[in-house]
């Protein structure tokens, strides 16, 4: 559901959940909270998520709140329905949105 790897000093959170919705939102958040993060920027890779609902968004924002990062965490790999949801809910105010992991890692952290 969630794996954390390091790339160039960035914590990359790869979500592989298919649907990030009410059915798994709580489990997803708890899985994240059980993991250790290294200091440094965070990038969330959503390539494996085809659908997100408002409970899923709530879980993502819980994670962001928990991280207490100085800037916006990066997020990338938004599939069309996820992109629509992000624009409807103005998630660009919370996340720096990139097309993919490579582009995100090549962009200096904000």
């Amino acid at each position: 559901m969630l794996t954390i790897t390091q790339a160039n000093g960035t914590n990359v959170l790869t979500i592989d959940a298919g649907r990030l919705d009410a059915a798994i939102a709580v489990r997803f958040k708890d899985t994240f909270l059980a993991q250790e993060l290294s200091p440094g920027p965070v990038l969330i890779d959503m390539t494996g998520v085809s659908f997100i609902d408002s409970s899923g968004l709530g879980a993502l924002i819980s994670i962001v709140k928990h991280l207490k990062l100085p800037g916006r965490p990066g997020i990338c790999g938004l599939q069309p329905s996820v992109k629509t949801m992000f624009s409807l809910t103005r998630m660009d105010r919370v996340f720096a949105i990139y097309p993919d992991v490579a582009t995100a890692l090549a962009t200096p952290a904000q």
């Binding site: 408002s54 968004l57 709530g58 924002i61 709140k65 624009s87 409807l88 809910t89 103005r90 105010r93 919370v94």
Partner: peptide, 12 residues
């Protein structure tokens, strides 16, 4: 034009 959901983050 969309907008942030309510009850997630303050100062929105």
């Amino acid at each position: 034009s969309g907008g942030f959901p309510v009850g997630l983050l303050d100062g929105m």
